[in-house]
């Protein structure tokens, strides 16, 4: 590889040319990227933009109920993108929300892209904060910026990015705007060029902090591979039956294989 071409690769102007949509070809990949967010924020639209697939999208909360997977190549690395069902919270237990939660918890994506609705940022942040508790490597995609503009809502993405400690990319996925910047951030977070310093919830209760600390220590001893013992501890304190079961039968210890199956839902 000569010097000129490597210059091109790192030049932001040429990024569009560096995206190769791989559709459902995920034969070998370097990074796994999860797409999470509240219902109807445009996750599937982002998914389609990046993979070139045509997962059905609609102005309709709850379009995606299982995960859909696709691939793309960017800057010479192959990525597997997993479109998760929309969820308001990771603390409840319906099937579609469990799919999202389990994947972020156990699928160990290299990057989790949280797609949020810019017009309803405060509500969307509730999920973002919960995801930041589970995983460090997050990119926030501030979607539907055109609607926010229409409603004359102004968002300072630099302040937001500084507060949350992760990259924040304004976008209009429906019109393919902001996708290059998003790709670049995914690339930087995946390769460790951007180190996230995620915002962590501040709890005032001393009893709670003690309990979480004690439990996560026990958990780490029993399941050394567990990436987010603190979150599991919180769930245990809440008495989440599926987490209790997965501890009892040892499932929690196994790193969930992220290529279990390709389930593409075509909704006509």
């Amino acid at each position: 590889m000569n010097i000129n071409s490597s210059n091109c690769e790192t030049c932001p102007v040429h990024n569009t040319g560096n995206l190769k949509r791989l559709g459902i070809d995920m034969s070998s990949f370097d990074f796994v990227v999860a797409l999470a967010g509240n219902p109807n924020t445009g996750k599937s639209t982002v998914f389609n933009n990046l993979t070139g697939l045509k997962q059905h999208t609609g102005n309709w909360p709850g379009k995606t109920v299982t995960r859909a997977e696709g691939g793309f190549e960017f800057n010479g690395s192959k990525y597997k993108l997993v479109d998760l069902p929309g969820t308001y919270s990771l603390l409840s237990t319906s099937t579609d929300e469990e799919v999202a939660r389990d994947f972020i918890l156990f699928g160990q994506p290299d990057v989790t892209v949280v797609v949020v609705d810019a017009t309803r940022l405060e509500r969307n942040l509730n999920l973002v904060l919960q995801i930041l508790e589970i995983t460090d490597r997050v990119v926030l995609c501030l979607n539907l910026m055109d609607e926010a503009e229409r409603h004359q809502i102004k968002i300072d993405e630099r302040i937001l990015s500084k507060d949350l400690g992760v990259p924040v990319i304004p976008a209009v996925a429906r019109y393919n705007k902001g996708m290059n910047e998003l790709l670049n951030s995914i690339y930087e977070v995946a390769t460790g060029k951007y180190i996230c310093k995620p915002y962590r919830l501040k709890s005032k209760s001393r009893e709670l902090n003690f309990a979480v600390e004690k439990l996560s220590k026990m958990l780490r001893e029993e399941f050394p591979n567990l990436p987010n013992a603190k979150w599991v501890a919180l769930r245990l304190l809440e008495g989440d039956q599926s987490i209790i079961d997965s501890i009892r039968n040892g499932e929690l210890g196994k790193i969930y294989s992220s290529d279990q199956k390709i389930e593409l839902v075509t909704v006509v």
Binding site: L121, D163, A211, L237, G239
Partner: peptide, 30 residues
């Protein structure tokens, strides 16, 4: 531990999430 921290733990947790979210969005959004 669940007994020790009391039954309002879930509400406390949710409340702190909502408060944090509201603070952050107030700073960034006009």
């Amino acid at each position: 531990l669940r007994w020790e921290i009391g039954e309002h733990f879930h509400d406390t947790l949710m409340e702190s999430i909502y408060l944090n979210a509201s603070d952050i969005s107030k700073r960034a959004v006009t």
